[in-house]
Write a protein that binds this DNA or RNA. Structure first.
Lengths: 251, 251
DNA sequence: CGGAATCTTGAGGGAGCTCAACAGTAGTGG
DNA sequence: CCACTACTGTTGAGCTCCCTCAAGATTCCG
């Protein structure tokens, strides 16, 4: 079931975009800001566990996440699901659908989400008018690619425990950098079912694997989600570390 | 060991680029062609199984594959390797390294390869001067993303036989569309070790899995590579089909 | 209050792993 | 030119990690 936009009017002006103040996001020039501002059509408020984009659809819009957690996934004919990646504030959603003929994956909200809505048809003018923004889009796509590379390495070559530790460390990092997590809020809003479908494991074995991590004091499972207790411990266990903080673009 | 360019001079003029005549590649405008032509620094001839780009390096160049097969991979500290994707003519190589600080994966040649060499520092001017080409780059990155999504689904959720069938069908499709394969030449130049590291399986089990496919008459393993006998059979077995042929860009 | 998710745990089975050995081929150096 | 070594492909045996099945406890939600 797709959630329809509750509003067509811009609520948050791009000039007051809360993401601008986050460390790690690059600054816009005034003309870029003006362009993005009129590129933005409105906002989409998505309920928790609602579908934002669905595989096979030809969407007229693309989105940027303003707030909330979500995830991208694909399913096989018989229902087997693979979660591909998670989305947090600052991430683009639906760029593939805007460039290719149709969406090759679906997107669902983990929490209530707010998304900025952009017109697909105006995408090309973004490249024409503001080369810098076009460059940023390519950057974003390349970064998503790098993340998927890492996930592929993880699923293909890491053991269950290493995989889970990697995923938790990865989500913690993304949460912190996007402002969804902080020193005091370290709660990732996923079910073990989500984790199983991300790790390529059965739900039973995912449960037993997460228990091992909990027994080591690295995490705590509570309130339909996961509390990160020891990010460094997770990184050590998975032999993975996030890349250093750098100025990243967003639209 | 990195292969050094044997020549700095452009051998094949962009105007005579053999890829231009391939079905499925979009046509350039004359001014685009002029730009790409002077964007191109020269050609790199890589020997079979030589390393073209290495993880962690800060490359001053990016490349387009003109001829030959190659692959991208990552390795864990203890040597476990995961092949992420294969590269064929028309594919960009090293775009990540050009956009991010350094390469997050390595690239190796499966056969002798020819690559067009571009200057990393001039990449931004491509976006400034030719919005269409910038758009194409984003398209290429988004397509790579879609492929990685599919691989992730495969490794995470398909059985060994399905996975192998998917990979073979996928490579056959890419080979045909890039001109590396044809009705008469259906030979993919990989070892079973490459397949194992792509599928996330051990080499022994990969061998036994490929045997099952060979026993079904779908493939034939010979001369250090794989002969595709029945592409449709592979597609059916993996419940995967390539997307329809469409005008795709290249640089 | 009842049904549907979600989390948990135990038991048994199987897909895929490691170890091991061998054959065929390619590459290399004396 | 041949011997030697490295790589590749193949097959068997036993083991283990992870799967499925099953059942129960807890929480959420209508």
């Amino acid at each position: 079931m797709t959630t329809e936009p509750r509003s067509n009017v811009t609520r948050v002006s791009c000039f007051d975009c809360p993401l601008r103040s986050l460390a790690g996001f690059r600054a816009f020039s005034e003309s870029e800001l003006n362009f993005v501002s009129q590129f933005k059509r409105g906002e989409l408020l998505a309920d928790s566990s609602s579908t934002i984009l669905v595989e096979g659809a030809k969407s007229a819009h693309l989105y940027t996440v303003l707030s909330g957690w979500g995830f991208r996934y694909k399913i096989l004919e018989d229902g087997r699901r693979q979660i591909l990646n998670y989305v947090v504030p600052g991430d683009m959603v639906g760029l593939q659908g805007a460039l290719m003929a149709e969406m090759q994956h679906s997107v669902e909200a983990l929490t209530p989400m707010t998304l900025c809505v952009f017109e697909r048809s105006k995408l090309y003018s973004l490249f024409e008018r503001h080369a810098g923004l076009g460059f940023d889009l390519t950057w974003l796509a390349a970064r998503e690619e790098a993340i998927l590379d890492e996930h592929l390495l993880s699923i293909g070559r890491r053991s269950a425990v290493e995989r889970a530790a990697y995923l938790l460390g990865f989500l913690y990092d993304r949460g912190i950098k996007s402002g969804m997590l902080s020193e005091t809020n370290r709660h990732i809003p996923v079910t073990q079912m989500h984790f199983a479908d991300t790790l390529g494991l059965s739900i039973v074995h995912t449960n037993k694997t997460l228990r091992k991590l909990a027994d080591r004091g690295l995490i705590l499972w509570r309130e339909r989600g996961c509390e990160i207790l020891d990010p460094e411990g997770l990184q050590t266990l998975s032999s993975w570390a996030p890349e250093e903080l750098r100025q990243r673009p967003f639209i």
